[in-house]
């Protein structure tokens, strides 16, 4: 129990720091993240440049901070849109059942046939590289998971007597969904979402790494990795720093996912 509460505090503290950085990034950043200074290129870590400078003399610390806004911010945006599309889709499909359910689920199946990365790459290819198109592409592959999850929860709960009771009590379908279905769906969806956000961050970073996401000179962690790969022997920190940043953020969100999974299980709570 001690370990779990410690883990919880650790997760909350790191999340708070992360949120702080994300919101205040432009104010904390000591330099303009896109300002090129060729005379200062590839400087090692120092007091002036906390994490050194890159091949164009830009301050890496500032780029990591503002890059966090792009990478993590876009992940949240993707997640938010996926939830907004997927959850109501799944709720309705499961609750209404019948023909509507069959049609909805065939649509979902069609989306699920393709592997995530392939769809994202093809879509970005068609729509052209750029952050907006990347968001769109990842939403296209991510929303189906939430639709399926919401639907499966609704299908299990729909059978139970308390839903019959709610109908006997004259509750409208909308009220039943809101009062009885949503609390069941929320817990599951939140856990999947926090586990997913790590994957989405990785996806954004890797697609940016191959040049489909953020376009230079905008700072983005994956794109920074890409730019740094040519200088790996001379300045390995240029790859290590964004790489470690990605790793840590993904780890934090995975821990948060574990924590939320325990949290949403009412059976661990005392009334």
């Amino acid at each position: 129990m001690i370990h779990r509460s410690r883990a919880r505090i650790a997760v909350i503290v790191t999340l708070a720091i992360l949120a702080f950085i994300l919101i205040l990034a432009p104010y904390i950043a000591p330099f303009d993240p896109t300002q090129v200074k060729m005379e200062e290129r590839l400087k090692p870590i120092s007091m002036e440049h906390l994490l050194g400078t890159d091949h164009l003399g830009r301050d890496v610390f500032s780029r990591i901070l503002t890059g966090a806004q792009t990478t993590v911010g876009a992940s949240f945006l993707i997640l938010f849109i996926s939830l907004l599309v997927g959850v109501p889709f799944g709720l309705l499909s499961g609750y209404l059942g019948g023909k509507i359910d069959r049609i909805f689920m065939r649509i979902v199946d069609a989306f699920m046939t393709f592997p995530d990365y392939i769809v994202a790459i093809i879509l970005s290819g068609f729509l052209g590289p750029g952050m907006f198109n990347l968001v769109l592409a990842i939403v296209m592959v991510k929303w189906v998971g939430y639709a399926r999850l919401a639907r499966s929860v609704v299908l299990t709960e729909k059978q139970k007597d308390y839903i019959s009771m709610a109908k006997i009590n004259g509750m409208s379908s909308l009220n039943i969904l809101r009062r009885h279905m949503i609390p069941h769906v929320t817990g599951n969806v939140m856990v999947l979402a926090t586990l997913d956000i790590g994957k989405i961050i990785l996806m954004i970073a890797s697609l940016s790494y191959i040049g489909l996401g953020a376009q230079p000179p905008a700072p983005e962690w994956g794109a920074m990795l890409n730019e740094a790969k040519g200088f790996f022997y001379n300045a390995p920190q240029l790859m290590l720093i964004p790489g470690l940043s990605i790793m840590m953020v993904v780890l934090i969100f995975n821990l948060l996912g574990d924590y939320l999974r325990d949290h949403f299980d009412v059976k661990n709570q005392k009334g």
């Binding site: 139970k160 007597d161 308390y162 009771m165 009062r179 009885h180 609390p183 069941h184 817990g187 009412v266 009334g271």
Partner: peptide, 8 residues
């Protein structure tokens, strides 16, 4: 089954 386990 007649009580929603998520509600007080």
């Amino acid at each position: 089954a007649s009580l929603n386990p998520k509600l007080k």
